[in-house]
Nucleic acid binder design. Structure first.
Length: 581
DNA sequence: GCCGTTTTCGGCCCGACTGTTTTCAGTCG
């Protein structure tokens, strides 16, 4: 039989849909089991088919949430591309679950009823029935339900449902600040996936302390950005913004603030695990606190809750149910890289190629953000559309950098501009600049900007070859993905990490909000393998240095400590490390 | 269907709000 090339995304989708079908059947716990397995697959850095290829059934069973039954079904999917169990379920209720359950407010139970009573199978048919006024006549549905469905469809059409964090963060911060400015608000924090710095978010959860919640809620639902109000109560309100993003606001008492912050920060699975631990200790944990019977044990701060549960405090970026609970119980959590730890930026573009600002402008902007140095890494000639540098122009740029540095020294500024490149990797893994030039640079970064469709083997070999070049220091944005726009190219990251360790090559955590490349699971693999990384803004203008924060957050999501990130080290130590490659 | 300091059977997180209902199911996080 032809071997199938099913991806993790496809496997997760099928597992999740099996869960939804089982929910329609009224099963109580199986749906959650399938959902958990789907989440585990999505969190994997490695393709499930590769795990199976290497370790067969045994290796699959080691995936969290995979028992006998799910392992069997996933094996079938890998081998044949089909799962008979899934297809049987699908035959009974042949609907496009992905489409329909993306409609807000519409769950499995109602999807089933809409199919059985109106024959609705997909978004288009749902819209048609809703517009024809057929849904409101069903028992249990009504005018409002029908309206909500239509609005849900409208939203899906324009947004796709999730937002890239870095693109919506300014608006979120703006709303949070307006709320903080109210005299009725004593304390306020953005929780949820925003606080965990997930790369994309589905909605925003804001938490506040106030003794006049009604005034806060009234202000919140009448913000000018509000497109509609879903719910307005004393403790909880929910709105949709004009850009399509949902925002929830919860108001709690001071005594519950820590418990609520913990609860609304999630992740959901992390919270479930905490509650289970609470139960085992004879407590009950909810958003109001940790209780023994009716007696409150903890709740004002998150720290006291973790402590009462016998654990160390867990940073929000780690709360993804990827082993953090066990480490916290054993008091073995790493001390994460901090937001103030980055001393310099190793990838900066200027107006010599596709950047907006001059070398000097970029340097001054970096300085004003508290950085001690930047590396100028303009593109090379193969990237013709950016005006990439050839040997002659990069030599000229190096002279220019010397001149600016001299000017800084004269003024008594300690800031340094280093010479570098973002050199294109050619098809065969050779480079777009000669070794003679590369030798003269302080930092050599290399990037794949072409031939994204090479086979996994060719792409991996291509990048490996550059890493074996002693002049190459860093692989920039190692997987090439653009969040929500372009998938990563096929590359064997296990192998890349192995070679990085062997050759002392740095792998970049590109902080640009649409890249965040390496992704969190790959960072964790590097940390475990002892491979060093850098956090770079990839700035193309002076405002882009602000991206570093997203890169630091990403590093923290991958459990990186200061010693894992070379541009968190003193400059001389970093340069020595690169020299000794 | 998974899982194990409650361990191979019997549990599995908990509460707010809505909409359509006279007491609750569905959805969400």
């Amino acid at each position: 039989m032809a071997s199938s090339v099913i991806t993790n995304e496809e496997i997760a989708k099928i597992l999740r849909e099996i869960g939804e079908y089982l929910e329609m059947e009224g099963e109580a716990f199986k749906p959650r089991a399938y959902e958990k397995a789907a989440e585990a697959v999505e969190a994997l850095a490695e393709e499930v088919r590769e795990i199976y290829k290497k370790g067969s059934l045994k290796a699959l069973e080691n995936i969290p949430g995979f028992g006998v039954s799910i392992t069997e079904k996933v094996e079938e999917l890998i081998k044949t591309g089909h799962c008979r169990y899934y297809e049987q379920l699908k035959k009974k209720i042949p609907v496009n679950l992905g489409e329909l359950s993306a409609v807000g407010g519409l769950g499995s139970k109602n999807i089933k009823r809409l199919y059985q009573e109106l024959g609705i199978r997909n978004l288009k048919e749902l819209e048609k029935s809703a517009r024809a006024g057929k849904i409101k006549n069903l028992e249990g549905f009504g005018e409002k339900s029908e309206e909500n469905i239509l609005r849900g469809i409208e939203f899906l059409k324009q947004s796709g449902g999730r937002f890239v964090l870095g693109l919506v963060m300014p608006e979120i911060n703006g709303i949070a600040q307006q709320l903080r400015n109210l005299k009725e608000v004593k304390k306020l924090e953005v929780a949820g996936s925003v606080r965990r710095w997930k790369e994309t978010i589905g909605d925003v959860d804001i938490l506040a302390v106030s003794n006049k919640p009604k005034a806060v809620m009234d202000f919140f639902v009448s913000l000018p950005q509000v497109a509609r109000v879903f719910a307005q109560g004393e403790t909880k309100s929910a709105i949709k913004l004009k850009n399509g993003m949902d925002v929830d606001l919860r108001v709690v008492s001071e005594n519950s603030y820590g418990a609520a912050l913990n609860y609304f920060t999630g992740s959901k699975d992390h919270n479930v695990a905490l509650r289970e631990i609470a139960i085992k200790k004879g407590y009950k944990l909810n958003e109001y606190g940790l209780f023994k019977g009716k007696k409150p044990i903890a709740g004002r701060t998150e720290k006291e809750i973790y402590k009462a549960l016998g654990m160390d405090y867990i940073e929000p970026e780690m709360r993804e149910m990827v082993g953090e609970i066990g480490f916290a119980q054993k008091h073995q959590l790493p001390k994460l890289l901090d937001y103030g730890d980055i001393k310099g930026d190793l990838q900066v573009q200027t107006n010599w190629t596709d950047g907006v600002n001059s070398i000097e402008e970029m340097a001054i902007a970096a300085m004003s953000r508290g950085l001690e140095y930047i590396v100028i890494t303009d593109h090379t000639k193969r990237l013709a559309m950016t005006g990439g540098l050839d040997e002659k122009r990069i030599l000229k740029q190096m002279a220019e950098i010397d001149k600016i540095n001299l000017g800084f020294r004269v003024k008594g500024l300690g800031f340094r501009i280093l010479k570098g490149t973002e050199c294109d990797i050619l098809k065969d893994g050779s480079l777009d600049l000669s070794d003679k030039i590369l030798e003269k640079l302080d930092v050599v970064g290399v990037s794949v900007h072409s031939l994204f469709n090479l086979s996994r083997k060719e792409q991996t070999e291509r990048i490996k070859r550059t890493m074996n070049n002693p002049n190459v220091d860093i692989v920039f944005h190692p997987t090439g993905r653009l969040i929500q726009r372009r998938a990563a190219y096929e590359v064997d990251m296990d192998e890349i990490i192995k070679i990085a360790k062997k050759t002392g090559t740095i792998l970049e955590i590109n902080a640009s909000p649409e890249r965040l490349d390496l992704r969190d699971q790959h960072i964790r693999m590097c940390v475990e393998a002892g491979v060093k990384m850098s956090v770079d803004s990839d700035a193309h203008s002076i405002s882009h240095f602000g991206f570093l924060e997203y890169g630091i957050a990403q590093a923290r999501r991958g459990w990186a400590a200061r010693e894992d990130i070379i541009n968190a080290w003193p400059l001389e130590k970093m340069l020595n490390f690169l020299k000794n490659k």
